[in-house]
Design a protein around this nucleic acid. Structure first.
Lengths: 164, 164
DNA sequence: TCCGGGCTGATATAGTGTAACGCCCGACCG
DNA sequence: CGGTCGGGCGTTACACTATATCAGCCCGGA
């Protein structure tokens, strides 16, 4: 075995990492090795990952890693719009890449919604403008000035709904 | 001082507690003294309250109270629709009273949204059908079967927006 | 009487997130 | 060159949030 446990190195993930680094640089952010490692772990996971799960995996490459190590990386990645937190799960998912949402006219701080399958744990991000507008309108109707919005739906994904 | 610290005993809160107890009983739930105390603390607060803040206050009346004491009460109150959790804050707020939402045709498990002021901490619950429908529609469009929805908007409340 | 379920007490532990200090290093400037 | 300033990271310690588990109590029904 040439590759160690930590490396499944999906080429698609590596490509996404390179694109992310590029996007960061364009905004004045530095995609350091640590941040890249954390983002790789998130993008390689099939479901949202908890901070401490990331920490465990990270220690393979960085024995000295501690909670602040991963939380600081996560904070950066969230600011860059590369990662979102799923509040209901206290876990993190990669954003398909902000670029993937350019079609709906949003930048890297785009509004998004999560569909969380309570059975298989799959969490998919959608980007629905009607939802975003409805929420913003409802807020503004009360004089509230919206800044950031969290929308998370728990239920059954299409596959699990059929299986059930 | 006749009343001790723990008792501000807002008559409106007491009335809400009585109504809540009634509503619980109608559904087969028991509003015990402990649960009533926890609900009173939540309804008396101006902002969402953390479980451990509740615990601290609760200990005035129940020296032996421990985390499970308050979490069990909270679980019951949430099931009864008397309390909601604000995920972004890991804190709990009283529901205006499910009855307050009968006007929009929902029962005690009604869809709701939170407007969280990042400056003063005030958190208001709204009940907007367009939002609820937009979210449900967006989810169903992907074959997802929605079960429970969390919508939380962080921003500035009307008062703070003016002050800022 | 005995059983069972719901509620609470009590202890222990798991999981999530931050504060605070200090070091290194590279950028920038006099 | 020397200084210093800021960002990123290591490290320790701690705060906050949540749950598992076992035991005791009360009450209503068989």
């Amino acid at each position: 075995m040439v590759d160690t446990v930590a490396e499944s190195r999906d080429p698609a993930v590596e490509a996404a990492l390179d694109k992310a680094a590029e996007a960061c640089a364009a905004r004045g952010g530095q995609m350091t090795e640590l941040r890249r490692q954390v983002l790789r772990l998130i993008l390689s996971a099939r479901a949202p990952v908890g901070a401490y799960a990331l920490l465990d995996q990270l220690r393979a490459a960085r024995p000295g890693a501690a909670p602040p190590t991963v939380y600081r990386a996560l904070e950066f990645l969230q600011e860059q719009g590369l990662v979102h937190k799923v509040e209901r799960l206290n876990a993190f998912v990669g954003c398909a890449g902000p670029d993937a949402h350019h079609h709906c006219g949003h930048g890297h701080d785009h509004p998004h919604q999560f569909l969380i399958c309570g059975r298989c744990g799959a969490t998919t991000e959608v980007c629905d403008d009607r939802v975003a507008h409805a929420v913003a309108d409802a807020a503004r109707a009360t004089g509230f000035v919206p800044h950031r919005t969290t929308v998370e739906v728990e239920g059954l994904c299409a596959a699990c709904a059929l299986a059930a």
